[in-house]
Amino acid sequence: MDMSGKVVLITGGETGIGRATVELLAASGARVVVGGLLEDEGAAMMTAVSVAGGLAEFHKVDVRSSAEVDAFVDAAASAYGKIDGFVNNAAVFDGFVTCLETTDALWNHVLDVNLRGTFFGCRAALRHMVPTGAGRIVNVSSVGGLVGAADGPSYTASKHAVIGLTKQIACAYAAQGIAVNAVCPGVIATEIRKNSTRLLGDDAPKMAGVGVDTDWLPRTVPMGRKAAPSEIATVIRFLLSDEASYVTGQYFTADGGWTAK
Score class of each variant (00 low, 15 high):
52 A>N: 02
126 L>R: 06
90 A>W: 03
66 S>R: 13
3 M>S: 07
207 M>S: 02
36 G>D: 15
85 G>H: 09
77 A>I: 03
68 E>T: 01
9 L>H: 10
155 Y>W: 14
35 G>S: 05
64 R>S: 01
101 E>Q: 15
217 L>K: 08
78 S>E: 15
170 A>C: 13
90 A>I: 03
179 A>K: 10
125 A>K: 06
64 R>L: 00
248 T>F: 12
221 V>T: 15
79 A>T: 13
163 I>W: 11
17 I>R: 06
52 A>T: 04
25 L>N: 13
32 V>G: 08
38 L>A: 09
124 A>C: 06
237 R>M: 10
58 F>E: 00
222 P>S: 12
142 S>T: 06
224 G>L: 07
115 L>M: 08
168 Q>C: 14
5 G>R: 03
165 L>N: 14
78 S>V: 05
32 V>S: 07
255 D>F: 00
205 P>F: 07
28 S>I: 00
82 K>C: 07
21 T>R: 07
216 W>H: 11
60 K>V: 05
235 V>P: 11
37 L>H: 01
173 Y>V: 14
135 G>D: 02
240 L>Q: 06
44 A>I: 01
18 G>V: 10
184 C>D: 13
86 F>L: 13
50 S>M: 04
228 A>K: 15
149 A>P: 00
195 N>E: 11
103 T>L: 01
55 L>M: 06
77 A>W: 10
177 G>A: 11
41 E>W: 01
221 V>W: 09
144 G>F: 05
192 I>L: 15
238 F>D: 05
241 S>M: 06
104 D>K: 10
98 T>S: 15
244 A>N: 08
244 A>I: 10
164 G>D: 12
187 V>C: 09
33 V>R: 06
40 D>L: 07
251 Y>P: 00
120 F>N: 13
113 V>K: 05
44 A>S: 13
35 G>W: 02
108 N>A: 09
257 G>D: 02
142 S>L: 10
190 T>F: 13
135 G>E: 05
110 V>F: 06
52 A>V: 05
126 L>D: 03
151 D>E: 15
62 D>G: 01
51 V>M: 03
16 G>C: 09
122 C>P: 04
119 F>A: 01
238 F>K: 13
69 V>K: 02
67 A>E: 15
139 N>C: 14
161 A>N: 12
155 Y>R: 13
40 D>A: 14
251 Y>I: 01
55 L>C: 00
18 G>P: 02
248 T>G: 09
172 A>R: 15
118 T>D: 03
2 D>H: 10
258 W>Q: 09
70 D>A: 12
44 A>L: 13
112 D>H: 02
178 I>Y: 08
194 K>S: 15
67 A>V: 09
110 V>P: 02
98 T>P: 05
144 G>L: 08
231 E>K: 12
215 D>E: 13
156 T>C: 14
77 A>F: 11
109 H>R: 14
179 A>D: 02
252 F>R: 02
235 V>D: 03
54 G>Q: 04
208 A>C: 00
188 I>N: 05
233 A>W: 08
199 L>Y: 06
96 F>Q: 12
207 M>D: 04
172 A>E: 15
201 G>F: 09
230 S>Y: 04
49 V>G: 02
19 R>G: 09
142 S>Y: 12
93 F>V: 05
7 V>F: 10
204 A>C: 08
173 Y>P: 14
83 I>Q: 08
123 R>W: 00
131 P>G: 07
116 R>D: 07
106 L>C: 04
207 M>C: 02
23 E>I: 11
15 T>G: 03
